[in-house]
Design a protein around this nucleic acid. Structure first.
Length: 592
RNA sequence: GGGGGUGUAGCUCAGUUGGUUAGAGCGAUCGCCUGUCACGCGAUAGGUCGAGGGUUCGAGUCCCUUCACUCCCGCCA
């Protein structure tokens, strides 16, 4: 028998009554009655109540032991009388009568309580992460993460995907996020970069003929943090397939995500086949390329209403003449909402940096009630109702701004209105695909054409007919998957034709030599017989966040860094010795 | 880089229009308690009110500067 335990702390049941057992674990909680002491002992699996009284010679010592000390208990399983059964824990029908105990790991006074549901400042949680991780909620989140990852791995294997590792020390890429750089000792003055994603490697795996690849891959990007974005590193389920079209990738991902979410959550998944929405339609109807489809509100464009002569709302009419768009959101049956409801939305919109949100309500006989209602003729109102499918009793909120701004504010307003009106069913997952991304976009600052997403994506349509004179019209086989307004993943069918790649890069301002230099591995490989291929890379952290119902990525990450990309527990990043710097041919030149 | 929030005991927080010795719960220490499961009761210790400067007879409280943490914008193909 193992010297530490015969059972874990969640194993003992009524059938074990009468047996001698060994339990080891942390002291979760003590309840000291003076002559009788209850000790809850905890391990990864659960909690068992142990009991000792003053007749035991070790009673006085045990009474004084700190919480979170690791002890081994030698005891006898006894039945609990019916009124003392604890239904909250799995072992609640029994308890262990302590014969003797032994301290395995002492514990100093705790900087934060482990047995508490209270919330604590992140600083102290991260510094003492090993204590924080003992706490119930986050401990369960990390277990969930582990289970999700092994489930996904298993599903991928079942679908015939092969798992490969790709290098962590690789080369810096010109596009995308800031790289983490690693100096090379053997190549003075040169640097490796940590991969932002194994993008080029997974394509090379396809060129190497492995057909289907996946990896739970660490990705490194030196960008600022957000609640749902770790600084530094995160994990993707990276996958790539040969001889596929977009729909083949969709099929795999839909099956995988549907099975995963079904297994690990009780929430309802709205559709097992996820709706596909084009990028342009998403921006029009939802103001965003990551719409929350749990939200039933839809944005409509009614710019042309403000060209009519029977609409006299001059403020908007003038803006429309100078190129602004009018977009609106209809809320159903809100005519009896108090004035304060509407005004608070308008005030909120101004706080978001918009010029505000105009509004009115459709009344019987087709009239408009509200501050700007008088500017619309009956016919104009009927036209709006037709266009927006609004009914009498509904209200309309209107924003008039330039395209990008109007999309931004209507997207925010869509969320705000749905929250205020409680239209979002929090107990569902609503997935969708966003498809037909444009290949290029215009950089607003420099006015130059740049890749809007992934430069390796395949343009849509007949490759001989693409009009490179109008690059902004070229769509790509580029797609995102979104769940409840959270972008889980981007993917694409890749461009495996070198000549086409050179052409597209030239539009974005890279000449042949630059492409050869920056993507030598890729472009060279594609010249030696590359299969058509494509893939995607769902974010593991965000999937687990959704399943664990957490808003912060650090709640599903074992050892996260803080917002300044510091690990408070390990003291990273840290200074290095002059010797180390010398070996790397580096010297520091710190800004004051 | 910019904007918001927070910072008071080991932990979570309260602290009035500026006014005597800065409080509570948990935790710690000591004492009492044989059926609790957030056990109960009593006592004790524990504070540079993030730091620095200013206004004032007097600052946890008002003003300025600064630091830390956090949320957001920028950024994240």
């Amino acid at each position: 028998m193992n010297k530490y335990r015969s059972h874990n702390c969640n194993a003992l049941r009524k059938k074990d009554v009468g047996n001698d057992v060994l339990l080891s674990g942390w002291i979760n909680k003590k309840r000291d009655h003076g002559n009788l002491l209850f000790i809850d002992i905890r391990d990864n699996y659960g909690i068992t109540q142990c009991i000792i009284d003053k007749k035991n010679p070790q009673f006085n010592d045990l009474e004084k032991i700190q919480l979170e000390t690791v002890i081994k208990i030698n005891g006898n399983v006894i039945d609990r009388s019916s009124e003392t059964i604890n239904k909250e824990i799995d072992t609640g029908e029994i308890e262990v009568s302590i014969k003797s105990y032994e301290i395995l790991g002492k514990c100093k006074e705790l900087p934060l309580p482990v047995f508490s549901e209270q919330e604590y400042a992140e600083e102290i949680r991260l510094k003492y992460r090993f204590l924080d991780l003992r706490r119930k909620k986050i401990h369960e989140n990390i277990l969930l993460r582990s289970n999700v990852i092994s489930f996904i791995r298993n599903e991928m294997n079942k679908m015939g995907f092969l798992e490969f590792q790709t290098p962590i020390l690789t080369s810096s890429s010109p596009e995308g996020a800031r790289d983490f750089l690693v100096p090379s000792r053997l190549n003075p003055g040169k640097f490796y970069a940590l991969p932002q994603a194994p993008q080029q490697f997974k394509q090379l795996i396809m060129v190497s003929g492995f057909d289907k690849y996946f990896q739970i891959a660490p990705c490194f990007r030196d960008e600022d943090a957000r609640a749902d974005r770790s600084p530094g590193e995160f994990y993707q389920l990276d996958l790539e397939m040969s001889f596929v079209e977009q729909q083949d990738v969709f099929k795999v991902v839909e099956k995988l995500l549907f099975n995963t979410f079904k297994k690990f959550s009780n929430k309802k998944i709205i559709k097992d086949k996820f709706p596909k929405i084009s990028y342009s339609e998403a921006l029009l109807k939802y103001g965003s390329d990551k719409p929350d489809l749990r939200n039933p509100l839809i944005i409509n464009d009614i710019t042309e209403i403000f060209i009519r002569d029977d609409v006299s709302f001059d403020l908007f009419k003038k803006l429309v003449k100078s190129g602004s768009k009018v977009r609106c959101i209809i809320t159903h049956n809100t005519k009896n909402k108090p004035r304060s409801f509407f005004d608070s939305i308008d005030k909120w919109a101004k706080e978001q940096g918009a010029s505000g949100l105009a509004y009115f309500t459709f009344e019987e006989g087709v009239s408009a009630k509200g501050p700007i209602g008088k500017f619309f003729s009956k016919e104009a109102l009927e036209e709006i109702m037709k266009k927006t499918k609004a009914k009498i009793g509904d209200s309309i909120f209107l924003a008039c701004e330039k395209k990008t701004e109007v999309e931004k504010i209507t997207s925010l307003a869509r969320n705000k209105l749905a929250e205020d009106l409680k239209l979002i069913d929090k107990n569902t997952f609503a997935f969708c695909w966003i498809v037909d991304y444009p290949m290029f976009e215009k950089d607003e600052a420099s006015n130059k054409i740049k890749f809007s997403h992934n430069p390796f994506s395949m343009p849509q349509g007949d490759l001989n007919q693409i009009n490179f004179e109008k690059p902004l019209d070229i769509l790509a086989y580029q797609y995102d998957i979104v769940c409840n307004g959270i972008e889980l993943s981007s993917g694409a069918i890749r461009n495996h034709i070198p000549e086409l790649m050179y052409k597209l890069f030239s539009i974005a301002g890279y000449n042949r030599e630059q492409v050869n230099e920056k993507f030598s591995g890729m472009i060279n490989a594609l010249s030696y017989g590359a299969p058509p291929h494509g893939g995607i890379a769902p974010g593991i952290d965000r999937i687990v966040m959704l399943l664990a119902n957490e808003k912060n990525i650090r709640e599903v990450t074992m050892f996260p860094m803080n917002q300044n990309a510091q690990d408070l527990m390990m003291n990273a990043p840290s200074n290095v010795s002059d010797n180390q710097l010398n070996e790397l041919n580096l010297s520091l030149k710190l800004k004051k």
